[in-house]
Amino acid sequence: MSWAEGLALVKRGAESEIRLGDFMGLRAIYKLRVRKAYMDPALDSRLRAQRTLKEAKVLSLARERGVRVPRLYAVFPSMGLIVMEYVEGPTLKEVVGSPGWQALAEDAGLQLGLLHAAGIVHGDSTTSNMVVTGEGVTLIDFGLAEFSSRLEDRAVDVHLLKEAVTSTHPGHAGEFMEAFMRGYSRALGEAAAGEVEARAREVEMRGRYVAARRSVWQAEAGEGGD
């Protein structure tokens, strides 16, 4: 019997396959890291096992430190499979702009701040990876998470979120980030949060500089081709 038998496919990406089903009577997400056909099978198996274990450790530590994340039900490293709690609800992306969304933005800041305080960075901190439930905001999808307390890594997390909100809700981005930073400061402390916010602005400026230079290079290349 296949592990996926009876499980509904939710999402299939380049790195993993997400399915929904039951685990010991509980609604659960089954996340399988897919095999890479182009990679040496032994190396592929080792990498998938390592990444699966790391994600499981991230979830366990985050929950232990009070971050709202899915409960971990089971881990099968040799299969590249994690079974975790299914968190039901709309994403924060879908809720921004509706009544009371500012409090949820602040809670998102609190959760990411607690995650950073635990020595973990998310790696894909967008409003699509934040689910709204009756308890507040739950962080999901830790496939790119790393154990890190580096200022730069924390700043990139905050910058990614700001970019996502600016792209999807430009009219609310400023208010969103103000509320977010209030929650973030509660978790990390005013001084540390201020350092992260300042570095996030530097990350943003570096990105703008690279984008501007790329436009110049492309224009110059176009002129040279005439």
Rank of each mutant, 00 (worst) to 15 (best):
G136K: 12
G123C: 10
Q102D: 03
E94T: 02
L104W: 06
V83K: 03
K162M: 10
L114S: 04
A155P: 06
V83E: 04
E152Y: 07
E135K: 10
H122I: 12
R150E: 15
H159S: 07
V95S: 01
A105P: 10
G109I: 10
E88W: 01
K93A: 11
G119H: 05
Q102V: 05
L114N: 06
G134K: 09
T138E: 05
T168C: 09
F142V: 07
T126G: 15
N129E: 07
E152G: 04
G134F: 08
T91R: 13
E94V: 07
T127A: 14
V131L: 15
T168D: 09
A103M: 06
I120S: 12
L161F: 03
V156N: 10
G113R: 11
F142I: 08
E135W: 05
T138H: 11
V83R: 03
D141S: 03
V95H: 05
A103R: 14
D153Y: 05
P90A: 15
R150P: 08
I140E: 00
A118R: 06
Q111H: 06
A155E: 12
G134Q: 06
L139W: 02
S149R: 09
G134T: 03
K93N: 11
A145V: 07
E152W: 04
L139K: 04
R154F: 09
S148H: 04
V95R: 12
V165F: 07
K162H: 05
H116E: 09
M130W: 13
G100C: 09
E146V: 01
A103W: 08
T138D: 04
W101H: 02
M84G: 02
T91N: 07
H169K: 11
G109T: 12
V96D: 00
P170N: 07
D157H: 08
L112V: 15
G171W: 14
A173W: 09
L110H: 08
V165E: 03
A118N: 09
T126L: 12
I120A: 07
G134L: 04
H116C: 08
V131I: 15
T168P: 05
L161G: 01
D157A: 09
H116Y: 06
T127S: 14
P99M: 00
S125F: 15
A103D: 14
V137F: 02
G123K: 12
G119Q: 09
L160H: 00
E163A: 14
L112Q: 08
M84W: 04
Q111Y: 08
P90K: 15
E146N: 11
L151P: 00
A108Y: 13
T91F: 11
